[in-house]
Nucleic acid binder design. Structure first.
Lengths: 197, 197
DNA sequence: GCCAATTTGTACCGATTAGTACACAATTTA
DNA sequence: TAAATTGTGTACTAATCGGTACAAATTGGC
C-alpha cells in the first residue's frame, strides 16, 4: 500500500474501538460520556471526530460490530473445528458459570443494547437483534447436524431448540446479575441444557 | 381523617405515579425527561417537587414499587384462589404470547431496570433484582406444593425449577423483542414449560 | 375577614454534554 | 525546502436537563 501524505495516526483504530467497547459495556450507551470514552481510548477530541465523524453513535455502532465479529467468529471456529460441535455450544453456556463476578454484572453486550436502544435508536436495536439472531442461526446449524448424525436424539424441531438456547442466553444475561454464585448458575445451566440429549 | 388547612391537591398520587410508570417503561429512566414525565402526569414542577422531594429518582423508585405491588399481588391472588396453582403460573407465561405487539417491545419493567441501573444506581438495581427474586419465590412455593400434591411429577429440586422459570421470564423479556410473532412465542414458551410435568 | 398552612405555576440557574472551530504539528511528494 | 495533506490538542458553543426560588392561589381554623 502506497504511503499517503500527511501526519500518520498515533493510534490503532481497532484497539481504540475495543477500549471504548469496554466502557460502553460497563456503563451503557447513554451513561458513557465522550470525556470518559476519550480518556479510555487515549485520544483527543480532534482525532476522535476526524476518525468517527458520526461521533459517539458511530463509535458505538462500531463497537457493537467489532464485538460481535470477535465473539461470534470465535465460537464459529470452535464449532467448525470440533468433532462434537454440540458439546462446544454447551461449553459456551457452561463457561458463563466460570466467569469472574464482575462479568456477571455487565450481562450480554448485545442484549443490553437491545434493551437500551429500544427508543434511543430503533434501527440500532434491530441491528443488535439481528446479530443475536445470527447466534441463534449458529445454534440451529449445530443442532440440526447433531440430530442428523444421531448425536442428539431429541426430535424437537431444531429451529425451536435454537430459539430455546437464545432465550436461555438472554435470560442468563439478566439472571446472572441476580445470582453472584457460580455454583448455582452451573446447576441452572445444566438443567436448561438437559433438553439437548 | 381530619382535614388539614391549606390548598388541596389537584391530583391523585397513585394515578400520577402510574402515568409516570408508563413513560418510564416506554423510554427507560435516563431517556425520560422530567418535562415529558410532567406532561404525562399532568402536573407542574411546583407540585412535582413538593410531592416528590427526591425528584426524578424518587418518582422512579415509586413507579417500580407500585408496579411490582400491582402485578405481583395480582398473580399471587390468582394462585391463591386456584385449585391448580401451577396452571396459573403456566398461564402467566402463556399470556405473553397473546400480548399486543407494542407490549413485546417494552420487555419487563423490572428486568429493564436491572439492566439500566447497573451503574446508574446499584442500590436500585439490587432492589429491582430483589423484587424479581420475590417472583421466583412465588414460583418456588407453587412448584413445591405441586410436587407435594403429586400434580407435578418432575422430582427436580423446586428451587432449581423456580430459578429456571425466572430465567425463562427474563429471557423472554428480551427474546420477545426479537420475534414480533405470537405464534412462534407460544411454541417457545410451551417447550420451556414442558419441564413442569 | 384574616392568618397559617399547603399547593400550584413560572421564571430562572448551574452543570453537564455532545459537538465544532481552528491553530498547530507531522509526514509525503515534488 | 516548499507545498499539500492528514492528524492532534484546545478553546469554545449551543442546547438540554434536573432542580430551585418564589410569588400567587386555595383551603381550614379562628
Amino acid at each position: 500500500m502506497r504511503a499517503v501524505a500527511g501526519r500518520p495516526k498515533l493510534f490503532d483504530e481497532y484497539a481504540v474501538i475495543e477500549r471504548a467497547q469496554r466502557v460502553f459495556w460497563r456503563l451503557g450507551y447513554a451513561a458513557a460520556s465522550t470525556e470518559e470514552l476519550l480518556a479510555a481510548m487515549g485520544i483527543g477530541k480532534g482525532s476522535f471526530y476526524l476518525a468517527f465523524p458520526g461521533g459517539k453513535k458511530e463509535l458505538f455502532v462500531k463497537t457493537v460490530h467489532q464485538f460481535h465479529q470477535a465473539t461470534f467468529q470465535q465460537l464459529a471456529q470452535r464449532v467448525a473445528a470440533s468433532a462434537q460441535p454440540l458439546e462446544e455450544v454447551k461449553d459456551y453456556f457452561r463457561r458463563i458459570a466460570t466467569a469472574a463476578p464482575d462479568a456477571h454484572e455487565k450481562g450480554c453486550y448485545l442484549g443490553n443494547t437491545v434493551v437500551e436502544m429500544s427508543v434511543l435508536d430503533p434501527a440500532l436495536q434491530q441491528e443488535s437483534g439481528r446479530l443475536l439472531l445470527q447466534l441463534e442461526g449458529l445454534f440451529f446449524t449445530v443442532i440440526q447436524q447433531a440430530q442428523a448424525s444421531g448425536q442428539l436424539t431429541n426430535p424437537t424441531d431444531a429451529r425451536l431448540l435454537a430459539r430455546h438456547l437464545l432465550t436461555l442466553w438472554n435470560g442468563l444475561s439478566i439472571t446472572r446479575r441476580l445470582y453472584p454464585d457460580n455454583a448455582q448458575l452451573h446447576e441452572l445451566i445444566d438443567l436448561q441444557l438437559a433438553v439437548l440429549h
